[in-house]
Amino acid sequence: MLLFQMAVHAGEKMGKNGLKDTDSIATPIVSGTTHWSKSSGDLIAFKEGRRHSFEYGRYGNPTMKVLEDKISALERAESTLVTSSGMNAIVATLLALVPPGAGHVVTTTECYSEARAFIRDKLSKMGIKVTFVELNDMETLKAVLDQGDVTLFYTDCPTNPHLKCIDIKLVAELCHRKGALVCIDSTLASTINQKPLTIGADIVVHSATKYIAGHHDVSSYTRSHVFS
Rank of each mutant, 00 (worst) to 15 (best):
C175S: 09
S124K: 15
V204E: 14
I166Q: 04
K16T: 08
D23I: 10
H206K: 03
E68L: 04
V226W: 02
H52I: 12
F132M: 14
C175E: 08
I71L: 15
K20M: 08
T131Y: 01
V171H: 06
K38M: 05
L135H: 02
M138R: 12
L145F: 13
E68K: 02
A92I: 11
K13R: 15
L97M: 10
Y59L: 15
L135C: 04
V205P: 04
V204K: 01
T93I: 04
H216N: 08
S224F: 10
I203H: 06
L188C: 05
G127C: 07
I203W: 10
E114N: 09
M6I: 13
Y221P: 00
A77I: 05
S113C: 07
C157Q: 03
I119C: 04
L188F: 14
A213Q: 07
G18M: 00
G200S: 09
H52V: 13
E114W: 08
L188E: 11
L81K: 14
Y56S: 06
P196D: 04
F132D: 13
E110T: 13
E173P: 02
H176W: 11
A73V: 07
L163Q: 15
V106Q: 04
E173G: 11
Y221D: 09
D167W: 06
L141A: 02
W36A: 05
D185A: 06
R177Q: 15
G179E: 13
V205F: 03
T83I: 14
T109G: 11
H9F: 12
D185P: 09
I199L: 10
R51E: 14
T198D: 11
D23T: 08
F4A: 09
L3F: 11
K129Y: 01
I29C: 07
L188D: 07
T108W: 02
S207E: 05
A143F: 00
T151D: 01
T222Q: 09
Y211D: 10
K70V: 00
R120Y: 02
I168W: 03
E110F: 07
C111Y: 03
F153W: 07
G18K: 02
H216D: 06
L19Y: 14
S224H: 05
K16L: 09
G32M: 02
K169T: 07
D167T: 04
A73M: 10
K125E: 12
D137C: 03
E173C: 05
L95F: 03
E55W: 10
D217S: 14
R177C: 01
L43G: 03
D217P: 00
L135S: 08
M1A: 14
L67N: 12
V105P: 03
L3I: 09
R58P: 01
K70S: 05
T209F: 04
S85P: 08
D149G: 03
S39W: 10
M138S: 06
H225K: 04
C111D: 09
H215L: 03
L141M: 09
V105T: 12
N136P: 03
G127H: 06
A201N: 09
I25D: 10
L181D: 03
M64N: 08
K142Q: 13
V150S: 01
S39H: 10
F54P: 08
M14V: 05
Y59P: 00
S190V: 01
C165K: 12
V218E: 13
Y154P: 01
E110L: 10
D137E: 12
G86L: 02
R116I: 04
